[in-house]
Amino acid sequence: MNFWFAVFRQAGRNLRQTWTSQLMTFLTVSLSVLIFAFFYLIYTNMLGAGDRLSDDLRLIVYLEEEPGTEMKEQLRRKIENFDDVEEIIFISKAMAYERFAAQLGDDSDVLADMPEDFLPASIEVVPLQTLRGYNQIKLFSEYLASLPGTEKVQYGQEWVERFYYFTRLLTIVVLLSGTLLILTATFMVAYTIRLTIMGRRDELELLKLVGATNSYIRTPFLIEGILQGFMGSIIGLSALYGLFRWISLHFAGPGILNLFQFNFFSFQVTLIIVLGSISLCSLGSYSSIRKFLKI
C-alpha cells in the first residue's frame, strides 16, 4: 500500500470520527479568515484611495500682497529650502479672479460689481510624492505659514486629518483581526487535533506496537491541520468575494464606492492569505502532535 494512500485514508477516518469538532473548527477558521480579509480589503482599498487623492494634493499659500519678481524668487528659494517640490505656481490677484470667474461659469456675472483684485494673491505648492505623509504635510504647512508675507495656508487639513486617523484606526482593526485569525487558527486546530488524539489513544498505541513509523502516525494529523487551513481560507475568501460582488452590484453608480474604485484582492494576496491560513493551522496541528503524541 502506498504510504500517502494510507495516511490520507487515516486522515479521512480522523475527520469522520470527530466530524462535529472538525466542523466547528472549520467554521471558526472560515469566519476568522472572513473577518480578517474583510478589514484588510477595506484597508488596502482605503490606502489606494488615499494614494489617488494625494495625487491632487496641493498646499495653497495665501499672501498678504502681490509679490514682485524679486520676492517670488526669494519665496521659491525658501520653499525649496524645506524640501524639493513637484511644482510651485504663483497666482496673481488677476489670475485668481479669472479662475474664480471660470469656475462660476454662467453665474460669473455676480462678479460684475466686484473689483478684479478683491481675491488675494497666492502660491500653489505641489509637494513631491514622497512627501505625502500626514505629519510631513502638517510640518510643511507650518513652515509655509511661518514665511514672511504669508496670510494663511490651506490644504484641506480637516479632510486629510480625518482620513489619516481613519486609516490609523483601520490599521489597528486589521492587526486585531489578524491576531484573532492567528489565535483561532492555531488554538482551535490544536484543540481539535488534541481531541482526535485522545479519542484514538488505543489505536495509536496499537499502531506503535505493530510497527507504524512516526511519520505514519503523525502525518494524518498534519494533513488534518493543512485541510482545515486550506478549506477554512477558501470558504472565508469565497464568502468575502460573494459579499464584494453583491455590494458592487447593489451600490453601483455615482457614489462613494466609485470614488474609491473598490478592488478585490489580487491573485498574489489571495494566495498569501490561503498559505498563511494553512501555515497557522499546520502550526496548531504540529504543536498538538508534539505535546500529546509522544512516540
Binding site: 500500500m1 504510504f3 494510507a6 496499537l206 499502531l207 510497527g211 507504524a212
Partner: peptide, 9 residues
C-alpha cells in the same frame, strides 16, 4: 492493520 503499516498493496 499490521499489513497497512508495512504499506502492503
Amino acid at each position: 492493520i499490521s499489513m497497512e503499516v508495512s504499506c502492503k498493496k
